[in-house]
Design a binder for these strands. Sequence first.
DNA 1: CGAAGTCTTGAATTCTATCAATAGGGGTGG
DNA 2: CCACCCCTATTGATAGAATTCAAGACTTCG
Lengths: 242, 242
Amino acid sequence: MPITLSTARSVPVSALSFAQSFTGRSHAVGRPVTLTDHLNDLQGYGARLHYLRNEVIFNQDDPAEHVYRILGGTVRLCRYMPDGRRHIIDFLMPGDLMGFVESPDLPASAEAVSDVTLIAFPRVCFDRLARDSADVRRQLLCHLSTSLLTAQQHMFVLGCQKSKERMASFLLRLADRMDLGGGDRLDLAMSRQDIADHLGLTIETISRSITALRSEGAILVPNTHQIVLRDMVALRVLAAEE
Amino acid sequence: MPITLSTARSVPVSALSFAQSFTGRSHAVGRPVTLTDHLNDLQGYGARLHYLRNEVIFNQDDPAEHVYRILGGTVRLCRYMPDGRRHIIDFLMPGDLMGFVESPDLPASAEAVSDVTLIAFPRVCFDRLARDSADVRRQLLCHLSTSLLTAQQHMFVLGCQKSKERMASFLLRLADRMDLGGGDRLDLAMSRQDIADHLGLTIETISRSITALRSEGAILVPNTHQIVLRDMVALRVLAAEE
DNA sequence: CGAAGTCTTGAATTCTATCAATAGGGGTGG
DNA sequence: CCACCCCTATTGATAGAATTCAAGACTTCG
């Protein structure tokens, strides 16, 4: 059973505007210190890396030697099954972290959806940080807990929802993570195929779901890779969020 | 969004025969010390509780004040959505732990599938234990990581597999957790409806899947609540494990 | 501008859900 | 101990949803 796993996001995007400067010195004041802040303390050990669209960042069975913080672009975290089926566990975006799961091997592959910039920290450095700081450990537990919560939410989507409902859930979550509300333009970095493999549907069904949401007036689709969430209430009802 | 979460198993059932004696003294030697062992050190603070079939152990939005170790019986961990749909995140069995997620509120309800015996430890006691012991913290990270791995595996089942494949995956996992192999009788404590809500199918489809697997010779069904895994190879192929 | 890749739409098929009826099983009371 | 009843599970028929197969439209990029 060649199964492993590795990641998940945890830091609210909204909190990142501060840390984004990435000075490597002491943390911003007036807000909770995040795992991201602590990672910044490791700046000297981090390698800034770039990946082109569709490049592989790490492979499913590679040894887990780094932890990552994404600075720019979108990453897809996926698992390939023996028979070739692919499941996209999650999409990771700027500010998200990955590679924190305790597992000798990585349980998933990470690939660049768009061009990606990230910082890779050696695991041994991070482990030292965790050993010496109670706060880092606490943040790490929160990070994993949040990942688990996200996973359980997605299990509900996959297990209980119909195609249109899944699409609504996906769009709402994406908007939430990008700190967008109704009316804003949502940029979809990923292809329809990526969305399909994330939601457990086919590319055709994704396309039809989008068409259906549009004809109901819930969304606008100015172009293929942008969507406007026009009727948040309708979307939330579909996503069973209220 | 009244969503929370709380639990997951982590300790291999096989490791529990040792700890099962529950003496509360020092740990058995010659094998890794588990989170379960550490919990045993809290014996004096633990309350042994009993629940009848279908009784609620804790509710979705209760404050998270305890961590639990299951001694006997089967627990279902479920989430109820606003519209009434139910998703069973996982079934927990003797030796399994729950309640370790860092979240003020519990993200799921726990209910007794069969009569259940468990020990509840106050969270504050456990937190103290975690504060004072580096090994507890390490085990806790492993526990959460394992939970996340399990969740990701189940996402694949829900996202990619057909009904018969889901049933095969479910039976194999159950057998694995109970330390059973091919030929042994597998006791199903849960109802068809429970299985359906776990696998994202209906009770009728569960029934038909079982019938199909039986008529293919993959399993035997001596009675409604027992199943013999007759052809492990066929089941593993269906479950995409090889 | 052309070509390759991606997305949308349509039609037919397959799978699962739904509706409905029957069968089985466990527990209770006669 | 058996009969009955209720609850659960199975099976059948039909409807609905998503997939598959196929064609055409739109983008993107060389």
